[in-house]
């Protein structure tokens, strides 16, 4: 974070991300909220780019802005129309308190931690390094995560299957 371009980009993207994230909470219309959530995801992807983590940035766009948000949109469209507003609920105050608590904790940790600065050069090709790490050093967690996701997916399919549905047509 030395040249002006990166600094300007960082602040612009941060502003975008935070504004969009606020939008998610504040906007009454659920679809608008999802759209600003996507914007916030894209902003985060931009932040990754300023950190020269290009692989993570592109993955962020692919997974979060592309796939996850589509899932959320699907969920909203499948919800009955009456429940689609971002209505006020009695959980408003507790949620606010919880959010503030989390924000405070994160902020405190961020400020309090003595961040060590690595003297190693940044990676030129992040993709290959990530790949090697995932399939070398971290292969076990990676595989466990895969199996977990698979199980979750199968569970989800099982849950929404209509009673007595037959396979195929």
């Amino acid at each position: 974070m030395d040249d002006t371009g990166t600094v300007v980009a960082f602040y612009l993207l941060s502003a975008l991300t935070i504004a969009a994230a606020l939008g998610v909470v504040v906007v009454r219309n659920l679809v608008h909220a999802v759209v600003s959530l996507i914007l916030s995801f894209v902003g985060v992807a931009g932040l990754y780019i300023t950190l020269s983590a290009d692989f993570v940035a592109v993955t962020q766009v692919l997974i979060y802005a592309g796939a996850v948000s589509v899932l959320i949109l699907f969920a909203i469209v499948l919800t009955p129309t009456g429940d689609r507003g971002n209505q006020e609920t009695f959980l408003r105050l507790p949620a606010l308190l919880l959010a503030l608590l989390v924000a405070f904790t994160l902020g405190y940790v961020a400020i309090d931690t003595d961040w060590a600065i690595s003297d190693r050069e940044g990676f030129q090709q992040t993709a290959s390094v990530i790949g090697e790490a995932l399939l070398g050093k971290y292969v076990l967690p990676f595989e466990i995560a895969s199996v977990l996701l698979l199980v979750a997916m199968m569970g989800a399919i099982l849950l929404v299957r209509p009673e007595g549905a037959v396979e195929g047509e």
């Binding site: 499948l78 129309t81 849950l159 299957r161 209509p162 009673e163």
Partner: peptide, 8 residues
């Protein structure tokens, strides 16, 4: 549980 959809 099944996914309930509104007729359209």
């Amino acid at each position: 549980m099944t996914v309930q959809t509104e007729p359209f």
